[in-house]
């Protein structure tokens, strides 16, 4: 079958190296601390970075169009406290509150997306403002609650929290299953629908997309709305997992999320990338952090390897496509091989 020849070749190369990296990590950390390899522990670790995983697969859409979203973390916290207050203080049915929470996330994302698509502001700036705005709104919403902000709202019904905390066969966390379902959903959305194709086209060449009759403004705005939806979803799941609704959930996830998307193969210039890569990269980063902490590294140091990973992965990609650097590399190679010849 000649179907997905060259394309898959290129994509598979990057993603298989991610899978390889994942396996290497598991091996190395397992050697350092054998407890790491216990299925319960290994799979259980995923719960800790599930928020990052979920948010990053949705943020992928935004980066493919060449934009960036740094407000997702704020939307996570905002959604959390929103459903908390709705359920606890306003008395709305919890599941209805969750639906409202998702809607809120979509709206927050769509607002920034609107400005990006229709007024031409830089995504970085508008989502910066959004991150202030939405984290601020979260704080304001707390004031409507009887509970103090730092405590957070708890006391959620068992079936709500158990749904997220539970495990299948006592080993595989429900969250992992949820994650896999979301990955499948976003995969189909991005790689198998007409909408997804339009997202790619807008990212590869916005002008050409316009000349092909694609409604680029709508498409671009929708990616931010999707990102907001993902953040809201992650917020709800995290709330259920922790059993507490707090305003500062998701505070520090921007760096890991962007790293996951970029490491996963999505170029921040837009046009290339994919959900699977992001998901794998998110797992790589999560396992890296977990493994390091199991190996005795202080949790606070964990941002260093993530930061290094980010810079190196982008540098490699840029060095790869930069003609000057390639020319210098060729020169280097030639000189090196000449030297070897001399020695021999």
């Amino acid at each position: 079958m000649n179907k997905h020849e060259l394309f898959k070749e290129k994509v598979l190369k990057w993603e298989s190296s991610l899978v390889l990296l994942l396996l290497v990590e598991v091996l190395v950390f397992g050697l350092i601390n054998p407890k790491f390899l216990i299925p319960r522990v290994l799979f259980g670790s995923i719960n800790n970075f599930m928020t990052i995983c979920i948010v990053s697969i949705f943020v992928t859409f935004v980066l493919i169009t060449g934009g960036i979203d740094i407000q997702a973390g704020s939307i996570v916290g905002l959604t959390s406290i929103f459903i908390g207050v709705l359920w606890n203080d306003v008395g709305v049915n919890l599941y209805i509150a969750c639906i409202f929470g998702l809607l809120l996330g979509v709206l927050c994302g769509a607002l920034s997306g609107f400005f990006v698509a229709y007024t031409g502001v830089q995504p970085m700036v508008v989502t910066l403002g959004g991150s202030f705005l939405y984290s601020g709104l979260a704080l304001i919403i707390t004031n409507f609650s009887s509970t103090e902000a730092y405590k957070g709202i708890s006391g959620f019904p068992q079936e709500f929290t158990q749904f997220v905390k539970g495990k299948i066969f006592g080993v595989i966390p429900n969250q992992l299953v949820i994650f896999i379902i979301l990955v499948i959903f976003t995969y189909f959305l991005l790689h198998r629908t007409i909408y997804g194709r339009e997202v790619f086209l807008c990212g590869v060449n916005k002008n050409a997309a316009e000349y092909s009759g694609v409604k680029t403004k709508m498409v671009i705005m929708s990616t931010y709305a999707l990102s907001g939806l993902g953040a809201a979803l992650a917020g709800i799941l995290l709330t259920a997992y922790l059993g507490t609704a707090k305003t500062d959930l998701g505070k520090e996830i921007t760096l890991p999320v962007i790293t996951a998307v970029v490491l996963g193969g999505t170029s921040n210039l837009g046009g290339t990338g994919g959900v699977i890569g992001t998901a794998l990269a998110a797992l790589v980063i999560g396992i890296l952090r977990f493994g390091l902490s199991m190996a005795g590294v202080n949790t606070q140091y964990l941002d260093i390897p993530v930061g290094v990973l980010l810079v190196i992965s982008v540098a490699i990609r840029f060095a790869g496509s930069n003609p000057n650097i390639q020319k210098n590399l060729q020169k280097f190679k030639r000189r090196f091989s000449r030297k070897r010849k001399q020695i021999v």
Partner: peptide, 24 residues
Amino acid sequence: IFKTSDVSANITASNLKNMGRIFL
């Protein structure tokens, strides 16, 4: 041109609405 897209994506870019309803 959509430089990093493949040939078929380039050819169908302006005709997407005839490529299915939701799924491509």
